[in-house]
């Protein structure tokens, strides 16, 4: 409170004054590409674009997922797995409300995903069953992420339509990177330095 008037009331009043008679409906032209069909080439594009960020991409059938996960992990690795992950993982450590410090001591994490975006090579997690809370895919240094081919969409608008805005989401496009030093892209700052995507089906 300042002079007995709340900041909220002041700001809303100032907004109304500032807009004044200019207030009018604005038509938003939505003639950009909004819905696109998914073809076999869409899934290929997804694989290509994920790899373009220097993430590793492994393609396999749905039956082979467990074997590919096992092959992706270093020997004797301890990896955190979220509840509801449909695949068996060697060295699995269930996420029993592990602290950040505990997560920091593990070797990796294995999760599923909600959507894959072909055009941008992006994986979106919405942190439900099989994906886990946000911290588990952030602190460990290796993220093995299984994306089913039927989860791949063509573009950003297609993904937005499938996501629930009230859930937390994390959009991942390649491993953590920075271009802050002379605009050189360097992988691996704070997120997992290795991202391995198993594209199944």
């Amino acid at each position: 409170m300042r002079d007995g008037v709340s900041a909220r009331d002041d700001i809303l009043r100032d907004v109304r004054r500032a807009v004044g008679e200019a207030r009018r409906p604005v038509d938003v032209p939505r003639d950009y590409r909004r819905e696109r069909v998914v073809e076999a080439a869409t899934v290929d594009l997804f694989a290509e674009r994920v790899a373009d960020y220097r993430a590793e991409v492994v393609r396999c059938s749905l039956d082979e997922v467990e074997a590919r996960i096992a092959a992706a992990l270093p020997p004797h690795a301890q990896v955190v797995v979220p509840d509801g992950l449909p695949w068996a993982v060697p060295g699995a450590v269930p996420d029993d409300r592990l602290t950040p410090a505990h997560l920091d001591g593990l070797d990796g994490v294995v999760t599923g995903a909600t959507v894959g975006i072909a055009e941008t090579g992006t994986i979106v997690l919405s942190h439900g069953p099989g994906e886990g809370r946000r911290a588990i895919t952030l602190v460990p240094d290796l993220h093995v992420c299984v994306v089913r081919a039927d989860q791949v969409v063509a573009g950003v608008p297609d993904a937005i339509r499938l996501l629930d805005p009230t859930r937390p989401t994390t959009w991942i496009s390649g491993p953590s990177a920075t271009s802050d030093i002379e605009l050189d892209r360097v992988e691996g700052v704070h997120g997992p330095r290795t991202l391995l995507v198993i594209l199944a089906g």
């Binding site: 674009r49 960020y53 975006i117 055009e119 941008t120 090579g121 992006t122 942190h127 946000r134 805005p165 009230t166 859930r167 937390p168 989401t169 994390t170 959009w171 991942i172 496009s173 390649g174 491993p175 953590s176 990177a177 997120g191």
Partner: peptide
């Protein structure tokens, strides 16, 4: 094409 990470959150989860 896309930045490495985008986070969205709706209040307290």
């Amino acid at each position: 094409r896309m930045n490495p990470y985008t986070s969205t959150w709706a209040g307290v989860q």
